[in-house]
Design a protein around this nucleic acid. Structure first.
Length: 466
RNA sequence: GGCGCCGUGGCGGAGUGGUUACGCAGAGGUCUGCAAAACCUUGUACACCGGUUCGAAUCCGGUCGGUGCCUCCA
């Protein structure tokens, strides 16, 4: 498996720390509002990553956290906690907001998108003792300092290699838009523990050796990754936006304590744009899965749209592009339905399904080249459409479709029609042969209402799902 | 201002120093009761300017353009 590693800026061969085990940590959602299609794009890619690793034979242990506290509205450690802000907006407590969006996200990810559930999905609020212990260790090593009535901060100047992931130019940060928060020793310093504002009661706050408050956002990933996966992990994934701050700070904290490289491979997905520009609330182009189904498109088509571009490419979303993906998917399912309708065609011309499956696997082993994998899938299906499926090839074809589902997460195992529907098709054939077009067409339109389309080909009538 | 990414045929989007990516859409044709599908034919792409090379869209430099993070948003 070759993967592009942000840390080395190169596409490296995956060499796990303890093969065949591969540990994967994915930065999860902050559960304070409705997830949008851009959020899901990232998880679709990492889902295929995990599926590919498993297909290769690795024993994957995956953690994906749930950020339910501490994520501020600014990377400057100023501003509000997104959770508390969401609570205010919805007239709920922060705890209720978290529960609400965890439920929604869960439904969308695992019911609608059909992603694989990670082995662990820890909530930051469930790991407060571990986070406090983590900060205590940082403090013991002299990496922290206090800003009165604000919080405990990590002193990034004490690290020689701070910013190695992002290749940060610390000097360059000074004159820019990024203004140092008051009291910080260095612009890049970040909070590991924030105090509850004086005279205010937060929904989420805990006692700590430094006073009542809540953990810094970056801390949770470091603490939970360590608690669940150990001092070192193989692969850490996340959005490209997390490179300069969040992941940089995770590395700083963890490596101070363990003295070892945190993650061996850092994978980052680019963001998908909408209408050629970034997804942003102020631009009003924040779409959800609901919007997709409301327009009559399928969630599976959206997955296909995402996988049609590489995870490191800035993808684009428009309704026209989604329509193209939907058409492509419809063609796939129409051909996949042939698994129930073998023809007495020439066996010698059949596709080599084992080879075809291997082609997909090889593409994904090449830094998760999903567009290339889909091209291979398209070519295989096109061949079946062209020559039909021989009776003896039904089983290999099904095996192939299963591997497509397992590795790409695209389910083309189209269900068979009912006996009744089969009888209707047979009945229509009788009328058709008798040139009784009226009756023949009536049956056809009745089937259409049941979601079954018919095509009279040179080899007879073929059905497909609409 | 700092850091980064990208520029491929109508749209989306891979890849490679010399060979058809692939998909969607379009055009012409064959077939066909109709419909749908299929099949055949069709686009000879790689921002621009230099350089390296026998040969570059693919490597190097520059120019122009777009876009992202640093601020609500993955």
């Amino acid at each position: 498996m070759k993967l592009h590693n942000t840390l080395t800026s190169k596409t490296d061969d995956l060499q796990p720390l303890n093969p065949p085990k591969v540990t994967v940590y994915t930065c999860g959602l902050t559960v304070y509002s409705q997830p949008h299609i851009g959020n899901w794009a990232a998880y679709i890619y990492w889902d295929v990553l995990v599926r590919s690793l498993k297909a290769i034979g690795y024993d994957v242990v995956r953690v994906q956290n749930v950020t339910d506290v501490g994520h501020l509205t600014s990377d400057e450690d100023s501003g509000e906690d997104k959770m508390e802000k969401g609570a205010k907006r919805e007239g709920l407590t922060a705890w209720n907001v978290a529960d609400k969006y965890i439920k929604i996200a869960d439904h969308e990810a695992y019911d609608l998108l059909g992603l694989l559930r990670p082995d662990y999905m820890p909530r930051a609020t469930e790991y407060i003792p571990q986070q406090i212990a983590f900060v205590e260790e940082l403090e013991k090593r002299g990496f922290t300092y206090t800003i009165a009535s604000d919080g405990l901060y990590f002193d990034t100047s004490k690290l020689d290699d701070y910013g190695k992931l992002a290749k940060l130019n610390i000097e360059g940060l000074q004159p820019g838009a990024r203004v140092a928060y008051k009291g910080k020793k260095n612009v890049t310093d970040f909070a590991v523990w924030k105090y509850s504002p004086e005279g205010q009661k937060r929904d989420m706050e805990w006692d700590s050796p430094w006073g009542k408050g809540f953990p810094g956002w970056h801390l949770e990933c470091s603490a939970m990754a360590r608690a669940l996966l150990g001092d070192q992990i193989d692969i850490h994934t996340g959005g490209i936006d997390h490179i300069p701050v969040h992941h940089t700070n995770e590395i700083a904290q963890t490596e101070v304590i363990t003295g070892k490289p945190f993650a061996k491979y850092w994978l980052h997905n680019s963001h998908i744009k909408v209408n050629g520009t970034k997804i942003s609330k102020s631009l009003g182009n924040v779409y959800t899965l609901q919007d997709i189904t409301d327009k009559g498109f399928s969630i599976e088509a959206y997955k296909l749209l995402i996988l049609s571009s590489h995870y490191r490419t800035e993808g684009n979303f428009t309704w026209a592009i989604l329509e193209a993906a939907q058409n492509r998917l419809n063609n796939y399912t129409r051909i996949a339905a042939l698994r129930h309708q073998p023809l007495a065609t020439q066996l010698s011309k059949q596709a080599d399904f084992e080879q075809a499956a291997l082609l997909i696997k090889k593409s994904l082993e090449s830094d998760l080249n999903t567009p290339q994998a889909l091209a291979a899938l398209s070519e295989t299906l096109a061949k079946i459409e062209e020559i039909g499926l021989h009776e003896s090839q039904v089983a290999p074809f099904n095996t192939y479709l299963q591997s497509v589902r397992d590795i790409l997460g695209i389910d083309l195992l189209v269900a068979n029609i009912t006996d009744e529907q089969r009888a209707m098709i047979k009945n229509r054939k009788t009328h058709h042969q008798a040139k009784d077009w009226e009756e023949s067409d009536a049956i056809r339109s009745e089937l259409k209402e049941q979601g079954i389309g018919l095509a009279d080909t040179a080899n007879g009538t073929v059905w497909y799902r609409l």
